[in-house]
Design a binder for these strands. Structure first.
Lengths: 186, 186
DNA sequence: ACATTAACGGAGGGGTGCCTCCGCTTCAAA
DNA sequence: TTTGAAGCGGAGGCACCCCTCCGTTAATGT
């Protein structure tokens, strides 16, 4: 991800400060995952074992903190696209979408991010599209996927599916399977 | 819906009190639709043009208020099942699901209700299943719908799809179409 | 070892929401 | 009209969260 956030959030120089920075990031990652974008900042500081002041020094706004966490998550997600590069067109797409689901299912905040409007969210969405869209295009050109849906349709469909609650993993997979079958060209 | 909520929430006797009761219900309906289950009760009272005390007198807990609104909404939704009774198996199911989507898409709270756990939510879910499940069973028996998915799978899939954001109605319909195609027996 | 200064953290002010309580208002039965 | 009581509504106590400020602490370079 090459985009820089407008406010420079940088890892501090001093060792203790770096520890706190990392602890905050880890705590924020957990909190955002569990409670979504609205997680309490004071709670995050508590979890990290630092004062609220330290949180604000490192991340002046909620957005700064969220972006720093979020960019890392997205980078990780996008890298999984490389893993499927060698597969046949349909398998590559399906496999990446499966990972997408498994990965995002536990992170409410990411789901929200896909549907929210802001400069950074847009950037990250673009990043996901940059790695995902070629997979879809390839599958469509190979005649494996219907051509009356866009990649955007697919992502929204999947992200919607992810946000629902499931009885268990098996059900989630079953539903995803149905959706993917719908995507196929018949 | 025959289930009674545990706490008796009753429309008051006095004319002015009845006016307030109805205003509260209308305000709550709007607020829950717009903001979900967490809508501010003080805001609801404000919208209704009554004091917060009046809200609490009529609905001692948030749950009481929400249930009263919600039961009405669900009843309305379930009635649409009658409208499709005469259609062929697949059309009946697809058509009901379409209505389900259109109806619930604007009501965040209902979506949440489908995935939350509580006595009343369970009751309402059962009610939806009571009218929806036969539609699905009929379509499956007619060989129109794959038999490796349950009605529960379908509802969760659809409710997930609904919760996502869409560029426009056309996209929503396109995605729903894909999901329904996946449901079909091929 | 020491001085410098980055970094800490939490008290506190402002805001919002939840819910209770009780003095005042207004309905409606007599 | 009178009057008892049902109903009203908002002040106020509590809890939580946001964010700032500044006196204190401790890491680092010499």
């Amino acid at each position: 991800m090459s985009a820089e956030s407008p406010v420079a959030v940088r890892r501090p120089q001093r060792a203790d400060a770096r520890r706190n920075f990392d602890a905050l990031l880890a705590a924020a990652r957990e909190s955002f995952a569990e409670q979504g974008t609205d997680a309490s900042l004071e709670d995050i500081a508590r979890r990290a074992g630092v004062g609220i002041g330290t949180l604000y020094r490192n991340f002046p706004t909620r957005q700064d903190l969220f972006e720093t966490v979020y960019i890392g998550e997205i980078e990780q997600l996008c890298q999984t696209a490389e893993d499927v590069a060698g597969l046949p067109p349909w398998d590559a797409l399906a496999s990446w979408l499966h990972r997408f689901v498994a990965y995002v299912a536990t992170k409410r905040a990411i789901y929200e991010a896909l549907n929210r409007d802001s400069a950074m969210f847009r950037t990250c969405r673009e990043e996901i599209y940059r790695v995902g869209e070629p997979l879809m295009a390839r599958a469509q050109q190979a005649g494996a996927v219907r051509t009356d849906v866009t990649f955007d349709d697919t992502v929204r469909m999947i992200s919607g599916l992810m946000s629902a609650g499931y009885r268990d993993e098996a059900q989630r997979d079953r539903i995803l399977q149905v959706a993917l079958d719908g995507l196929k060209r018949h």
